[in-house]
């Protein structure tokens, strides 16, 4: 048994490296504005979700995140997500025309393989956004993804983004997380 330990560790390391590369590539797709390619890392049945983050006392901490069924900041399926991308090319998506200049910094990756072979991963992010002349936003938060292999590639079928802000200090969220 002891002899299998290094192999399993190697496999975990390889998986971690594979996912880290996946997330680095994703960040470049977003920051290089290759949004159609970015859409393709999600499955057709994707659930892209950003709950509201409440400011609550410690005794109510179980209510800190709004649940599914309550109003969320993002609650997208593939259709909604595709619409967000498609509208950017219409020439009339004013919130992103001129477009935001973004930098997605991803780290703190943890990867867990689920019994069915799917993956649950968690990352922390800092998203910097510069817009128009002097607008600046800094978003910080975490993303928990569920991924499965489709045609030999990892694809995300569930993404839950948790911002660290309560009142969002931005005129809009027209960028992707």
């Amino acid at each position: 048994m002891a002899g299998q330990q290094p192999n399993r560790q190697n496999a975990q390391h390889e998986l971690w490296l594979e996912l880290m590369q996946f997330y680095i590539s994703e960040s470049w797709l977003l920051d290089d504005r290759k949004f159609d390619e970015w859409l393709d890392i999600f499955t057709e049945d994707v659930f892209y979700f950003m709950p509201r983050r409440l400011n609550v006392g410690r005794q109510d901490i179980s209510q800190e995140l709004s649940s599914v069924g309550d109003l969320a900041i993002f609650e997208d399926d593939k259709t909604y997500l595709s619409m967000r991308v498609a509208r950017l090319d219409t020439g009339m998506a004013w919130a992103e025309d001129p477009p935001s200049r973004t930098r997605h910094i991803i780290g703190n990756l943890v990867v867990e393989q689920l019994p069915n072979g799917d993956i649950r991963s968690k990352t922390a992010f800092i998203l910097y956004r510069s817009h128009h002349e002097t607008d600046e936003n800094l978003f910080s938060g975490s993303r928990e993804d569920h991924l499965r292999k489709e045609d030999g590639r990892w694809k995300i079928y569930k993404r839950v983004i948790v911002l660290d802000s309560n009142v969002i200090l931005a005129k809009n969220l027209s960028v992707f997380f």
Binding site: G69, I73, Y80, A95, I168
Partner: peptide, 27 residues
């Protein structure tokens, strides 16, 4: 309810595809 909740948040609100385009006008 799910359809209206998603529609409401995805068209209006801070991430709303309609409302995000209003901000710089009002500013």
């Amino acid at each position: 309810k799910r359809a209206l909740r998603m529609g409401s948040g995805n068209y209006n609100g801070v991430s709303g595809m309609f409302e995000q385009d209003d901000m710089d006008n009002w500013r």
